[in-house]
Write a protein that binds this DNA or RNA. Structure first.
Lengths: 142, 142
DNA sequence: GTGATTACCGCATCTTTATGCAAATAACCA
DNA sequence: TGGTTATTTGCATAAAGATGCGGTAATCAC
């Protein structure tokens, strides 16, 4: 049976795109994508993929967890200016957040510099910058 | 009715002391302290107190959440040396973590200085330092 | 092919947490 | 004080998630 991997890819997509709060959400989301399975299967998939549930109640991919926490905890604002994104952080945290962003390796980013409470992120063009901005904002739950 | 507040104080203690994973854990812990109540009551207490459940599966007080996340995500090691505690963090994060520690206002800390990836914490004496060390380590789940 | 082994999954059920409802208790007030 | 109102709680049950068991499909050795 090969469907398992394909289904788990679909789960990855759903978790990244939307805010999935329950396993039922996933069953329904998968249904719309043409996959049919039960909550029991989802439970096993979640365990196998190492999905975590945040205190805020949404599922998140394990590889996104660290960045999410740092962004949610330390980023104060995100502003767009042409192909630049200016990220304000808690005092003294810009270096740390910038390192995590770097490590996450968002493809649309050319590079960044960080001061004490500000990160300047340079994207190739306005659209790439905008994409990056919304990617960050998606991590800032609550 | 005064028992509610007293019970919630006991819950606070338990959550800080041990790693509480289920509401049943709390019912049992409270039982040993002489409080008798049901899981339904605990559920309401947890909601009212704003307790959160970490992805690692343990409950945490809302006021401890930010520090916990930063410590868990960014602290690499904690070493004790007489009345000093040397905290190693991810590169560029020492400032941020030190600020959060500062904000948490652990009473046993006299002060601290932070470089790029190291925080030096000064306590009044060896015992205070040791207490602080274990307080930090308690936040470093998994 | 046949048989054995393995991976996968649904069903049923268990565990954990949330909640509607009514009873009990506390707080208030005339 | 007696009556009224607001809180707090337990019980029963719903909702969300985990898991034992057995069945089916895919794989492999022969």
């Amino acid at each position: 049976m090969k469907k398992r991997n394909v289904r788990q890819d679909a789960i990855r997509q759903l978790v990244r795109q939307r805010h999935i709060r329950t396993q039922r959400d996933l069953v329904e989301g998968l249904e719309k994508k043409g996959y049919s399975c039960t909550q029991a299967t989802i439970s096993r998939d979640i365990n196998e993929m190492g999905l975590k549930k945040l205190p805020e109640g949404v599922y998140i991919l394990p590889e996104d967890l660290l960045l999410q926490r740092l962004v949610a905890d330390l980023v104060i604002s995100v502003e767009l200016a042409n192909n630049l994104v200016v990220v304000k952080t808690a005092a003294g945290s810009a270096q740390g957040v910038a390192a995590a962003l770097e490590a996450a390796g968002e493809p649309q980013v050319l590079g960044s510099v960080a001061g004490d409470d500000t990160i300047l992120v340079v994207a190739a063009d306005n659209e790439q910058a905008s994409e990056f901005e919304s990617a960050i904002n998606k991590l800032r739950l609550r």
